[in-house]
Design a protein around this nucleic acid. Structure first.
Lengths: 235, 235
DNA sequence: CCTCGTTAACTAACATGTTAGTTATGCGGG
DNA sequence: CCCGCATAACTAACATGTTAGTTAACGAGG
């Protein structure tokens, strides 16, 4: 068992000047973990991180505390802190919690949303189709996220987006390992269209069912990772 | 406007010997805030807290960081940190998020749970009725919570309970200000019975609807607080 | 060669010193 | 009397020194 150490050189140095140092360190470390620059299972050493970012141990320690709350690192008392290994159990828990919240949101939207939302979602879908044709999968991914965010935003629950992000950290990290699949994108658009129609029809049951179907596609695509990339997963 | 300062004397000193100091400080502060020993709007000073608990500033700072993540305190940069005022908006957000999660749990339970759960819930209801007759409202409250926890536990989502607690902090604090209402407890038992029957019948739609009805009673009882105790709420 | 116990090196956790941003104070001018 | 500006006092944020727990290295004994 190689006790791999995270390479602090891969951290992008703190760009924004404003805000608390510990928040900027947190953002930098979180980005490194979610992008897999810090591999699952790698050990984090405060010393090299302090040196790489040019800060003292206090803001780094604070940042690690927050990452622990995000379940992105595991602190072994008095010993070390390491990047959480992937775990299908954790990912499934993420999926359950995310589904619960996002389904509640889309039901609410179907009943309460302003008609503006339909227009915004339609425009979003048109953009998705254009990006599918042009093959720009990065932009497609962002537009996909924007579709979901529009639905969340209309609920007027400010914390909804942050809460979903918070409970989905493991799933979001695993998601990056999925290769863009052209066939999948066309299906995604179709699923989004079902969701939009249900909202337009003010049909919460249909919206709920369409959102469930849509979200459950993701976990299906994530499950094979445990076999194909076993080294990233906890034993 | 009186800039009220939280009285660190009200902190119960760190009882458990084990675990990280910062976690124990966190628990102590959180208990003081949730029990309203630290009033909403009161300013927290690190100095007195360190003195009262006999620790240095580092664990106290760490604890305050976690309380900020819980939205129980608001840190004003370089200036002060104060106990969050109550806010009906925050409480409503808590209620939305909790309902989303708990409804998902009870639907899951109605479909997947082991028959044991029904037995456990029945025993719990018998106990609730006994406690209602004896007038022991504290024990009734705990049994009520146990009823919900049993449903959550059967989902095998370890984080479910913690996530619900995490999103419900403002609501849980406000809840303490509700006086025990004898009539209400009888209704509570009846609502619990509906939930249990729906689970026993493996009827997720009925379970969902029964849980929604049940949870929405709480927010109805909380809403008057904004009028009766305006000093605790943000302007 | 392997096992166990000692110890040395390393790290997180805790304590404390220092800096810099905010807020209150108080004096001079309008 | 009230307003604005300098300044002093206070606090969180940051840096660094210290402690104590864990792990790994090493050597003696089996």
């Amino acid at each position: 068992m190689s006790t791999l150490t995270a390479d602090a050189k891969k951290l992008k140095s703190l760009n924004s000047q404003s805000g608390h140092l510990s928040d900027r360190v947190y953002a930098s470390l979180k980005a490194a973990i979610l992008s897999l620059d810090f591999e699952p299972g790698a050990v984090l050493r405060k010393g090299p991180i302090c040196e790489a970012l040019g800060v003292s141990r206090t803001p780094v320690a604070d940042a690690i505390l927050k990452l622990e709350a995000d379940r992105l690192v595991e602190v072994i008392p008095q010993s070390a802190t390491r990047v959480s290994k992937m775990s299908m159990k954790e990912i499934r828990e993420d999926a359950f919690l995310r589904e619960a919240l996002e389904v509640a949101a889309v039901e609410y939207a179907a009943v309460h949303c302003a008609p503006d939302l339909i227009e915004v979602l339609e425009q979003n879908l048109i953009r998705q189709e254009a990006l599918l044709k042009s093959g720009d999968y990065t932009a497609f991914f962002e537009t996909d996220q924007a579709f979901h965010n529009e639905i969340l935003a209309c609920c007027k629950i400010e914390r909804l987006h942050d809460t979903i992000s918070f409970v989905s950290n493991h799933m979001d990290r695993a998601r990056l390992m999925l290769l863009p699949a052209p066939g999948r994108s066309a299906d995604t658009i179709e699923e989004h269209r079902h969701i939009m129609r249900a909202i337009a029809n003010s049909d919460p049951e249909a919206a709920r069912s369409a959102m469930q179907t849509h979200l459950r596609q993701l976990i299906k695509r994530l499950e094979p990772l445990e076999k194909t990339r076993p080294e990233l997963f906890a034993p």
